[in-house]
Design a protein around this nucleic acid. Sequence first.
DNA 1: TGTACATCAGTGAACGCGCGTTCACTGATGTAC
DNA 2: TGTACATCAGTGAACGCGCGTTCACTGATGTAC
Lengths: 215, 215
Amino acid sequence: MLTMSTSKKDGAPYHHGNLREALIASAVEILEEEGVTKLSLRGVARRSGVSQTAPYRHFKGKSGLLAAVAAQGFRGLAKAMREGATQHDDPSDKLAAIGQSYIRFALANSAVFRLMFGAEIPDKSTEPDLCEAADEAFAALASTAAIFTGHEAPDRFNGEQDGAPDQAFAAWSYVHGLANLLIDRQIKPEMVFGGESDPIELTKRFGRFFDFSRF
Amino acid sequence: MLTMSTSKKDGAPYHHGNLREALIASAVEILEEEGVTKLSLRGVARRSGVSQTAPYRHFKGKSGLLAAVAAQGFRGLAKAMREGATQHDDPSDKLAAIGQSYIRFALANSAVFRLMFGAEIPDKSTEPDLCEAADEAFAALASTAAIFTGHEAPDRFNGEQDGAPDQAFAAWSYVHGLANLLIDRQIKPEMVFGGESDPIELTKRFGRFFDFSRF
DNA sequence: TGTACATCAGTGAACGCGCGTTCACTGATGTAC
DNA sequence: TGTACATCAGTGAACGCGCGTTCACTGATGTAC
């Protein structure tokens, strides 16, 4: 950073200085505005104001960019869940807050969310960074869910998820499904309440069918 | 059908006779084998052994074909759920059977399932047939879930879902989430059980956290 | 402090490709008479 | 029963397009001396 030449007075410097991050940001924008189908490496470069071959300096082709976007998404989701959880002490409240953060994240970043979990990236296991980010997100959920069993939460899951308690998966399934149905507009909050309403309210309302005392 | 000229002895008759269905079937095959990204109208025509412009006789472009595939998917899902439900009398058993049918369908038709719920078809409301098929699927779930409230199930939802009980949405969320996590390989049955295992067993196992007596 | 030079980050032309869709057409079908 | 003809279902050439990726390149940077 010390030696960066990018100056604010300079309109378009030869060296961008932060192209990798800029490309990811452009990709996210296109993703959210136009959908995965319309996302092209050339379009991303164009939006970043850079030649169409510049991205190859930072990613191994289009698939590399997609993986980086998804990884950043998982990191953001993990952070959101952690922040939600730390605002409460009671395990039930913690878990509820995590679920709400999850829903909020999905709604605010629906195209990225879809990319993270969809089939657009065929084999996630070939992208170590992506795996690590995904594990981080799952760990954020599982560590709280583990409290219900009284077992200690394993602090790493190695992409194996061994030892993660059933509730983690059950809670994840529920919240993941609600998130998906909401972003796919299969459940519209206003349809359930009969008026305009908040998806988070929905999360709480449906959540009472979930009984974590049963383990 | 009476006047169809397609004869079995004839290798490639000029008139196909059943091209619409054949195109949908080809689309499903490509979808499951190669993913949405690789699905092209030309490829579908090719696989059906027909010129690349023939599909335009039966669908209004690529988007029309996609909608037809999704609609057929929803009909199949609705049928599977209904068949699952009729094998039991107890409402809880009925609901559990519906969930299991849902998971089975998703796993057996994962690419179609993704298409049904994903963003590949941008505005489903412009396709009346698709809406109708989706409503049919939701109705199959909601009519059973409604038993828990003691209220009568509305027999149509008009794409509005008004009057559908909360449990229907909660159960749907749970089962939809588990289905998605399974087809996206985020939860691998063998990871949870520590050995090879059956996704349906998972459905039951996690399902016990769901308490439908609370309404 | 000044300069030669290796390294790094970006350029721009070019490749070959498959796509969605249109158009004027032709072969097959079924019906009115 | 035979035939003219409207209708239907498919053909094949052609359009313009944007894409991913490669290649040899050039401008900028930072360091060894």
